[in-house]
Write a protein that binds this DNA or RNA. Structure first.
Lengths: 257, 257
DNA sequence: CGCGTCCTTGACACCAGTCAAGCGTTGTGG
DNA sequence: CCACAACGCTTGACTGGTGTCAAGGACGCG
């Protein structure tokens, strides 16, 4: 027996998956491909035939406005679907790109449909995943609207730490974080310069370390208190006290191999 | 034959509902109750037994932070579900309150489950509705992050005009908008004073009128261009050129009666 | 070695938040 | 019917957070 995939780890918080369910999900994940960093997977306006799933690395949802500014509306980590919704909505209303090098699974739409027609538990799990995505979006909205910059950054790091841990992609107190500061600024809705200075403040206060595409959170409790972070909106079954998995990837990578 | 309910009008953009489907949905909407303005329907942390649907009036999703500030993460207008997700996620991660006086339908969870088990088209329509909610959240994130205040306000008004029109709640160029400026500021993530001054600017420029809980958009095209608004993320089948419905409610109210 | 990408820093302007007061409207009770 | 209170909108003054522009520096890659 080998370790479960990020997807299975994540979905097991959303439904009680039988061993068969897990195997069905695993079967779907077989066809993987490596995608270079900063590569578009889907572009706004397309009507893709495949659903994409991140197995390792970071991807993001984004939109580019008329004036050239960019908004990153979601970070996709291992176990996250990129576009489960497109089967129903039809046309993409935003683009998706890799941030780091990624392993991506492409799943034909009929495969998903077959899965959801036959296995209600799997359906429920997928349903759950998209609802959690929605909850994350709401929290980001709160973050941008009503928290001050430092808290906002800290909050994002708390969230990512917990999300990465639930899919087994943390290494002790650290996790991979391949975004440039420009990209991070675009996800927080602030300017690069301001982000840079705020980050320095957080480092000075010993709340986070940030070097070489790896973020370290020395004391998650302290950072959470600082940011006003609670994991409730992630709707994890096993609460975030779940001990980090023992053996993990070395620095700068994320996802199983 | 009487006019379709806001819910049915809205969902018909998401799936090709048969007449029977429409009747099933209408049946569910029979048990209505009036709720006073500024009343909580559900509070963060609860595990409600019912799903709520807005038939008339405005409601909102919101969170209150530790420092007392409030963030409004969604405006719910006629035809919108408040908490379809709670059946799967279990616990509410935010609260929902009425803004104006509302007509609210309460639907027992088993009723929803029965509906979705038997009628795939209805299921698809509900699925679609929650995905549109998610798309709206993404657009709001863009709005807060990368548009300047005036555009941001204008964009929200464009969105609401189109949403209200698709459920038959506009009156020519006008629609009900019962939020106070404090509430509007909390949904845009800015301060009341700043909002007030920005609003005045929009009025001076003749882009929107705003009086007595009614917003008027004299020229939707102009406002859309100003705000950088496109309706694509609302995923409506009939594009927003759809002429406003002929007979409509008078000022200050919304929703059928 | 040289170029490009990303991070860092300084200077400066201005957008936006806060505090505080005034005004208008509404509704309620004497 | 009027007075008062409550609420929401508006305004001014002031401060500080945040964006912009620009330049320098560190690092990695070809």
């Amino acid at each position: 027996m080998h370790r479960p995939s990020p997807l299975v780890r994540k979905l097991s918080h959303g439904a009680r998956l039988s061993r068969e369910d897990c195997e069905r999900l695993a079967a779907v994940e077989r066809d993987r491909r490596i995608v270079a960093p900063r590569t578009d997977l889907i572009i706004e306006g397309e009507e893709p035939e495949h659903v994409h799933l991140v197995v390792s690395g970071y991807a993001c949802r984004y939109k580019t406005l008329d004036d050239g500014s960019r908004s990153i509306m979601a970070l996709l980590v291992p176990g996250d679907f990129c576009d489960l919704h497109v089967a129903i909505l039809g046309r993409m209303d935003h683009s998706i790109a890799t941030v780091s090098e990624c392993e991506i699974v492409r799943i034909a739409r009929p495969t998903i449909e077959r899965l959801t027609e036959r296995y209600p538990t799997v359906t429920r799990a997928l349903w759950w995943a998209t609802l959690v995505d929605e909850a994350v979006l709401r929290e980001w909205l709160v973050n941008m609207g009503r928290r001050k910059t430092n808290q906002q950054i800290a909050h994002l790091f708390c969230e990512l730490y917990v999300r990465m841990r639930t899919v087994g992609c943390t290494d002790g107190n650290s996790f991979a974080f391949p975004l440039t500061q420009d990209e991070l600024a675009d996800t927080l809705g602030i300017s690069t310069v301001h982000l840079n200075r705020s980050l320095q403040k957080l480092r000075e206060d010993g709340l986070v370390e940030f070097q070489g595409r790896v973020v370290t959170v020395p004391d998650l409790d302290r950072l959470s208190r600082y940011a006003g972070f609670t994991a409730n909106y992630l709707h994890l079954r096993v609460l975030p006290d779940e001990p980090p998995v023992a053996d993990e990837r070395p620095r700068g990578r994320c996802g199983p191999r």
